[in-house]
Nucleic acid binder design. Structure first.
Lengths: 361, 361
DNA sequence: CTGAAAGCGCTAACAT
DNA sequence: ATGTTAGCGCTTTCAG
């Protein structure tokens, strides 16, 4: 591996100047700068991440923690974050919690503490107070996406408003008997979104003066089959069958559409269906949905971190954050930088396709 | 951050002993060992990755390069690799090539050269000779999964045999008019699997003495819609319609199943369909398929790398690898360690479900 | 604007 | 089995 002194020699400057020229910190004459870059290029020199990290305290690496990857949403977020980070010369080290409790503990007790990362992005996570404490003890920027993080600034879509929007769409079409397929209680442990989404559905009904009927609210597991099973329950009733179904995710909505077909119901004349997510296959099924944009969300949140890192000034008073945390109070912003408050709500969009229409008269 | 000397002090030993006790290299008395661990735990000490890497040359980090993440297969492989690595205390730094040519160049020209990783896992990639050269110049273990890598040992399923197996299943059921939905030429640039899979289909037909009819071979793009469109072409013909379809992926197979339903054909009595992949939703659709196991593949390949890293001895003679590479010859094993040859073929399994049956008499 | 030199926090000989 | 010590390759004062 060619080192910095070889570059220095070739460019006829000191190693200090090479470092400055290549990292862009400190003054370097334009000519010198060019010579250094030229020399580095010719030699194929790339700084050693470890040495640079040790000397500077900056790793140019961001840790991204996800509950699992095998889900469109998380994969897309990571991909988005990745591309934003990569553009700025940051690497992305992935931590996955799907390996069970041990793996999870390891991530929070060891891996994240190794000083391998400058910042942490926590995606779709619900942290325990201990885990949040560990994260805080890093004294590094941490931001969350799509999960409630105690004491950590977090972004996400407004799940409640999103489902409400879908439901309102159906109501505005004239539907009054609207079923709901949401998450079962199990899922509420990891994400609170099931609850939030259900509330959004109820909000819309209530506001429109439609009575809530728990009999046409079903829990499922966010899979195709789950949505399909739930829909069959909803649609199988001989009378007073819903004319529309709001599903808490696109995948479940598609399951519902397939269920309707199996039962000989026509979409949308016999049944309207809405989803939430905006997955690529939604278009194929003509699914009306409230789309969110995970790749953009990932980019956005990564960019936020990059900005913080760039403007990083000083640590806050040593004990403020943890003290607040112990009291169970989530301060508005607990990151090392006193940046502007985060825009909490990420955009969603109602996409009307062929799965919704006026109910039969 | 608490450092190694604080631990040394507390355990009343030297820093060298702390290092040995914690890393497990070199002799340490059992009692000392315990004291050190205890002290480290009490202080919440974790080695600094950067310092350790600089001093030892080992980063305990593996780079994983994927073309993109937004596909079941890649996400599952990464998840599998992740868990194996994590169990052994390795981190996983992800490099994503989906950002276009610039991103791709950056990965090979800078990011991988930063000495941030001990080894590289290249998934589903077809590298240019330059890229392969860069990888080689790292002088680090590199293994590929599911993509032809010039000069790099690579594992993968036998795509040709897999599709052949599916086709043979249909033939054994009595089908003789069997259509094929594969990848279009565009896709062949990145993965060669479309071609290989098509050859497998033809192999089976030829061996059974069935004539190949290019009119019932269709290219598609590995999406639901692509499979659906292609199937409609195949099934729309008024006469001499295939009684079975082999699809080169589960997603396309599902597209075909939905196409059949739309056309009023019954599965499997009017049409049998097979896929390839073993995606979770396959079961819901009753899809007969040849399953592969990406998570296990990822684990396997990660484990391979870990073993190499553990047994790492010496670099091979400086120029052997690159010389061979320049000649365009792919040696059996070009990794620094002269390990046993890799088992190239990863397992697949025919899973028979409800989408296949004997053709109507 | 550039150079000299002191580390960053750890590991690995080499001693003992 | 444990301690001493010299770096690992860079960044960053501090001078000039």
């Amino acid at each position: 591996m060619v080192g910095i002194d070889e570059v220095a020699e070739r460019a006829r400057v000191s190693t200090a100047t090479v470092s400055r020229a290549l990292s862009g910190r400190g003054y370097v004459a334009e000519g010198t700068r060019a010579r250094v870059h030229e020399a580095a290029r010719e030699l194929g020199y790339v700084v050693s991440a470890g040495a640079s990290a040790l000397a500077s305290g900056r790793t140019r690496n961001v840790g991204v923690v996800v509950p699992f990857l095998s889900h469109w949403f998380f994969a897309a977020v990571v991909e988005g974050a990745q591309s934003a980070l990569q553009e700025h010369g940051y690497d992305l080290t992935l931590y996955n919690l799907s390996g069970g409790a041990d793996a999870r503990a390891r991530v929070f007790d060891d891996l994240l503490l190794r000083q391998r990362v400058d910042a942490v992005l926590a995606i779709g996570l619900e942290l325990t107070p201990e885990e949040a404490g560990r994260l805080h003890s890093l004294r590094k920027p941490v931001v969350g996406l799509g999960g409630p993080l105690p004491g950590v600034p977090a972004l996400g879509i407004d799940d409640r408003a999103a489902v409400r929007l879908a439901t309102e769409h159906l109501i505005s079409l004239g539907h009054e008997r609207i079923g709901y397929i949401g998450g079962s209680a199990d899922f509420d442990l990891d994400f609170h979104l099931p609850t939030m989404r259900q509330l959004g559905y109820r909000d819309a009904l209530t506001e429109a003066g439609i009575e809530i009927d728990p009999k046409i609210e079903r829990g499922a597991d966010f899979t195709l089959r789950g949505g399909n099973d739930a829909a069959k329950q909803l649609l199988g009733a001989p009378r007073n069958r819903p004319t529309a179904i709001v599903a808490a995710s696109d995948v479940m909505a598609i399951g519902a559409i397939l269920a309707a077909r199996e039962l000989g119901l026509n979409i949308p004349s016999d049944l309207s269906v809405t989803g939430l997510d905006g997955i690529p296959d939604g278009e194929f099924f003509g699914l009306t949905t409230v789309a969110q944009y995970p790749a953009e969300q990932g980019r956005h949140v990564a960019q936020l971190l990059i900005d913080r890192l760039a403007g990083l000034v000083e640590d806050p008073a040593p004990d403020t954050a943890s003290a607040r945390l112990e009291n169970g109070v989530a301060p508005a912003a607990t990151s090392p930088t006193a940046g502007p408050a985060l825009a909490r709500e990420l955009p969603v969009e109602l996409i009307v396709r062929e799965s919704t229409a006026r109910p039969r008269p």
